[in-house]
Design a protein around this nucleic acid. Structure first.
Lengths: 337, 337
DNA sequence: ATGAAAGCGCTAACAA
DNA sequence: TTGTTAGCGCTTTCAT
């Protein structure tokens, strides 16, 4: 089968000891330039690569970081991953991406797997189902560095990167109000996600600014962030069958926004005439849509970069870190109506 | 820092030897049920997990497979990854995803990294820039199991999964012809990719069936699969400034198809009135587009599953495998015009 | 039924 | 400057 060459192979071939070979390759001073040259040339010739598994075992680090997101197909996350990779590769870290598909069980399994596999740190964005984060705090308490981005855990003390969700939601809702809409519904993800809470707050604040009461029946939750189309469809059907139908919806997520447009098309509800849609999304094809969708765009790439920088700082810190940053980045409202 | 408990810790705590503890945990017969019970209970209590790195070093396998795709944001690939994960997790394998962003250099680096990191096998879809596959055959020759999917390497003998690209391209082009178009251009990715070659063949065959000569200036290559918008834009500008402008374009890729629509919108070229577009794409939002895009859909999820099944079979095979499958799956043409 | 020891590939302390 | 040895966590002979 697949048998890479080892230090021992080189040592034997060259009639040296493994430690001498190791030293030659690692370029320590205590080695004759002659021996070094011979070893390096031979290693070059046979294209020797040190076994990183053995290295990991020895050095107790893997030079890899684990990433937990709900789905790579989500535009926000694929862009964030781009940012993560850009920093990680630069700093010599490998990136292991795992998806939860919004499942709490899958999240626990993936986190366990990543941790036991010995990643040096974790970049986490919680699944929609997750309300209990003890699987993470357990690891965090034992010293595994982690940084949250986008969907952060309230009760774990570490670096956190998020977009200014409240402001973004406020801006989007205000824009709907300015365009004359008054009956603005809110379609959001599960109610324990940080982003849901913050976006709801922005929505509420905007309504209050216009003196419009917040109506319970105008707020619909999709516990799986719209991963199941039925979920989105039912929520919208409930909204559209209210006696006092909304004339706009502010949607709090990428998949939900697109799901919402899909449902509107399916039911032949004209956008924006009959109902205006505004929502969080990082999709780059919204411009091509038949129905204009105003979108709140997060600086996904930048968030990925920042989170990774912070994580690597944690990983490589000589001393336990006790001061944590909570970075909040601005969103951008793109108007298409 | 982060210090997981080890066998030795358990042994010390329980006054046993590490080997006894190991045996108890691995449930061998040569162990008293009493000792076993004690050990298992204690391990349970402290939530012991064996160190997979140590295991890998010992057993010379990592129970992980490496995946190389151009971009996870590509709908085809994110769906294929879904299929890959579904099988891999079932069989106890972890999936490590890497992206090339269509760069040959990045591909070499990623492959090297995956191999040296000790993945048990590789699922590969080549980058658009890749024409030389020696970095892969080197590893393949040394016994690293690999399976190609979608963008396969001609000269490496192993299992390969692809869609019926020629038939799909033929169907799409025929449909354009049937709808009355006669001046059909072809926008495609780099000319060394297997998929480009096959799709070009389907396009050509369809034209021939209608007795239409294939014109060189109607065929435009984007060496990076449209990853850079300028690439797509220039190709289309060249097409549209021909004296005999095309009245349809058959596009050979996901990003290219969407890029094409984007450019048409930018230049205010009406689709499908002025020009019809038909292309390979697995996007699930095409229905929402303002301009109808007929699409050839590949069974991405199924391809991912199949490729993974085959890879695991290779990995776990006791004997060297010499018979290789070349599975070709049907595509589906979705008409939207 | 249990313990001691070797070995997977590597580095580093210790000898020479 | 080079070699010998121990040890990272685990499994697996080989003794007991």
């Amino acid at each position: 089968m697949f048998e890479p060459t080892t230090l021992k192979d080189i040592a034997k071939a060259l009639g040296l000891s493994t430690s001498t070979v190791s030293r030659a390759l690692r370029d320590t001073h205590e080695i004759s330039s002659e021996t070094k040259k011979i070893v390096l040339e031979y290693a070059q010739k046979i294209n020797y690569r040190p076994n990183p598994i053995a290295l990991s075992l020895k050095e107790r680090r893997t030079k890899s970081i684990g990433v937990l997101v709900s789905e790579v197909a989500n535009h926000y996350f694929s862009q964030a991953i781009g940012g993560i990779e850009s920093i990680a590769y630069d700093r010599g870290y490998h990136v292991i991406i795992t998806q939860t598909h919004e499942s709490y069980e899958r999240e626990k399994i993936n986190i366990q797997h990543l941790a036991s596999r010995g990643v040096d740190g974790l970049l986490v964005s919680l699944s929609a189902e997750t309300s209990d984060t003890s699987h993470l705090s357990l690891l965090h308490d034992r010293g595994l560095p982690m940084v949250f981005f986008d969907r952060v855990a309230k009760d774990i003390e570490t670096h956190k990167i998020s977009a200014n969700n409240e402001q973004g939601a406020y801006d989007a809702t205000i824009q709907l109000l300015e365009s004359g809409r008054r009956k603005i519904a809110h379609l959001t993800s599960s109610n324990h996600l940080s982003i849901s809470i913050e976006r709801l707050a922005g929505y509420t604040a905007a309504l209050q600014k216009y003196g419009i009461p917040v109506q319970e029946e105008y707020i619909k939750y999709c516990p799986h962030g719209g991963m199941f189309p039925e979920e989105t469809e039912q929520a919208i059907q409930e909204l559209m069958s209210l006696k006092d139908k909304p004339d706009a919806i502010f949607v709090a997520g990428d998949r939900l926004s697109i799901g919402c447009i899909t449902v509107m098309k399916k039911f032949n509800i004209s956008v924006p005439e009959e109902i205006s849609i505004s929502g969080f999304s990082n999709s780059d094809v919204l411009d091509l849509f038949n129905s204009p969708l105003n979108s709140v765009r997060q600086p996904a790439y930048e968030m990925g970069r920042l989170a990774t920088e912070m994580l690597i700082k944690l990983i490589e810190s000589k001393y336990p870190v006790t001061e944590f940053e909570n970075r909040v980045l601005d969103t951008e409202l793109v108007i298409r109506s």
